[in-house]
Design a protein around this nucleic acid. Sequence first.
DNA 1: TTGAAAGCGCTAACAG
DNA 2: CTGTTAGCGCTTTCAA
Lengths: 341, 341
Amino acid sequence: MTSTGGRIGSPTLDEVAELAGVSRATVSRVVNDSPRVSPEAREAVLQAVEQLRYVPNRLARSLVTRRTDTIALVLSESKTQIFSDPFFASIVRGVSAALADTELNVVLLAARDEREQEKAGRYVRQGHVDGVILMSMHNDDLLPEIVAEAHVPLVLFGRPQNGRAVSFVDADNAGGGALATRHLLGQGRARIGTVTGRHDMNAGLDRFSGYRTALEEAGLQARGELCVEGDFTEAGGARGMARLLEQVPDLDAVFVASDPMAVGALRTLHAAGRRVPEDVAVVGFDDAPIARECDPPLTTVAQPLAEMTRHMTDMLLRQIDGDPDVEVRVCETHLVRRASA
Amino acid sequence: MTSTGGRIGSPTLDEVAELAGVSRATVSRVVNDSPRVSPEAREAVLQAVEQLRYVPNRLARSLVTRRTDTIALVLSESKTQIFSDPFFASIVRGVSAALADTELNVVLLAARDEREQEKAGRYVRQGHVDGVILMSMHNDDLLPEIVAEAHVPLVLFGRPQNGRAVSFVDADNAGGGALATRHLLGQGRARIGTVTGRHDMNAGLDRFSGYRTALEEAGLQARGELCVEGDFTEAGGARGMARLLEQVPDLDAVFVASDPMAVGALRTLHAAGRRVPEDVAVVGFDDAPIARECDPPLTTVAQPLAEMTRHMTDMLLRQIDGDPDVEVRVCETHLVRRASA
DNA sequence: TTGAAAGCGCTAACAG
DNA sequence: CTGTTAGCGCTTTCAA
């Protein structure tokens, strides 16, 4: 039991104070940039800090200030491999970027199964963080409940299923699904199928409902054989596409609810000898890097991730500063046109 | 400034003590599972804890115990998109799993650029964690230095470039490269190329040197036109393979230093009309999920990730418990044979 | 502008 | 087995 916390032999405020010949209150003031310090005192302190390589112990500080200046980005995702999803990587990047020039730290918490979710919940409730951004795509998730009950400021990425009063930011998934489908309709496609996301994720459900809406606007129907459920993975997309081709051999377009699935779908189409987009047009969702790289490049619906992550951090910071309002933000999606549709 | 730290109005040990009619030392004993408590006292305390929904404030505890019971898994990776790499996801999973039934928490720190690296370094030095596992594939990384200087226990994933005395776990990358190459040689392949990793990553360099060794063992040479530098991405693999075909049209095998690159290489080979593995055999590295899913499934070199993550956590825990030894562990790789080679 | 003193919530001797 | 006491390292009144 050596180790850290205040690492072994790590200098304290008192030692700095002694070396600088001032009181520890003064050192504290200098360290915290208080203006009420004489230039001489400040100089002496800074020198002592330098000399001792003093680093304040944040735990001690947090104990009295009641802020940790760190927020948790919790990735609560059991079923899919969210961790290798480039989409998730973008969120992480966005949140870090939004907080880059603040004093706030971001820690990522992985909560893949129930056990890890409880561990993460405990971590949050024990006072390690000032607030939480939670990405949990599934609806049976324990964490929103746990965090909310602990009265820790919380912002969700994605609309929660139950109508709980909680702040969240979401993309207009339904709008995006409609956008994609209308685009296909506008090309004169008539037999438009869809590979949906899992039906226990709102994002998937919403994208699907957008597809249906757009078809209905055009006087068409989302007939059952046109719709197969996928799982947001590439393999799932390939399987879904195969089923679709079986059920509707003369399919001429497909809206696939995520880019990894769309890539899988392309593979199936190639294997089946269909030309893309001539025979079958494909539109994906999420504008993942693979959408650009695949062959042919994929037309896809993009979420304004930078905007969304900015909103999330803003909302969270407001809550941390004591604003009790529940805020909701739904961000517009847009179509990124490429060759495959 | 409401919020957390000890969340507003969160009950304290004293309040529990009062409600239970005991001293706060007794409450502390119960909470920490000390055996020196009478059943009655324990019962009373547990009831009070329940009633007040008491959760200990970890910061306060850490301040005195000098342990946070948290370790950081730092992902220091600027150039490649480590975050969407399934390989990295496996490490995260492995470390979490190894720590699942301990009291230790794991937080992930993203350190993509210099600024984030400094922030992560500060976070570590301020006493938030008991130890650090660092994944940093590049050699110009600041963090190993920062963490080591702060005397925070540290284990590296991957051999560091400079010979600094620091504990690490690595796969036998050179051995794996040789394994792959010998396998191809054993099939009677004679013109074996390679798409390497970036030369500023040890893993890439080592795999390449294994390739060279195996060729030399067989009395062959790693001629320059047989070797092209890749970047561990799928697109890079595709480009590398294209160059290789240009330079050595009669190539009959290729060792690709990572699975994503190998998948890219397969694409190029297909596009060029080469049959795999009949015309050109391919061996990848890392046994990523795509290695199974691609067509044909990829023969690849696997690292024993579960074993490696277990070693890393074990080594770190030993250091945290005060063992000053520097430990090094190089884990054997093995070939996973599938159809494409 | 500065220092002394009182805690933040908790654990850990030390008596009893 | 239990309570009292003394801090962990820091911030923050309050006087001076």
